[in-house]
Amino acid sequence: MPDSKQTVPADNEVIDLTGVSKRREKGDQIFELRIPRFRIQRGEFIAIVGESGCGKSTLLDMLGLLLTPTTCDRFRYAVRHPQPAVDIDRMGARDLAAIRRRDMGYVLQSGGLLPFLKVRDNIRLPRRINGLAPDCPSVNRICDRLGITGQLPKLPAFLSGGQRQRVAIARALAHEPPLVLADEPTAAVDKLTAREIRDTFKELTSQMGVTVIVVTHDLDLMLPVSDRAFTFALEKPTGSHTLSTCIEQAIR
């Protein structure tokens, strides 16, 4: 993988969020997420752990450039090595979409596969969108490693939950992005399958030198493979105001 060759910028940071906040209002309920400092090194496997409603999906959507922060001091990406870091908060929608398209892979809770495309076409889709050749040996290797080669001609509807998540992982990695975001990738499968999927995911991403950020409520499952973890501290200054602060959690 080209990224594993280390001609790295000084600090080798791929993501730097400093003083970022997102405020959402629903009726009279106010939810505010604060991220004082969130810096990720290249190749790290990061777990973001928290109960539902703590803002972990909001954080992930901001990292996935789907949401823009309400305020931010610094929101900087340097995923595409060796290109210089870019300030996300200064970029237009087109460029954000370009980063999303090329530099990110996404694993959604329930797979997020397109129901009308066969497994093979779902996996090829990010390559096609990026104008890459739809077939490539590395994709075949990923599919082999995930054990879904036999499922390629099927429609997603005919797969089990575990198979779907494996396909989702394959799709997230198909265009060899430097960054993969995963949203509860194992929430919908049994514990044993979850562990298998986790291990394969970890193995593939570390082989490829991919930076991974996984959102999970299952700390026990993800901690063993994570380099670092973040969690949220909840406060309720008033009855209608919830304040959540993202903090790094010591794990070892």
């Binding site: 789907l66 999303r100 996404y106 596969l113 889709l125 990010p126």
Partner: peptide, 8 residues
Amino acid sequence: VLRLLGLS
């Protein structure tokens, strides 16, 4: 999903 995959 398509938007997530970078189509905009």
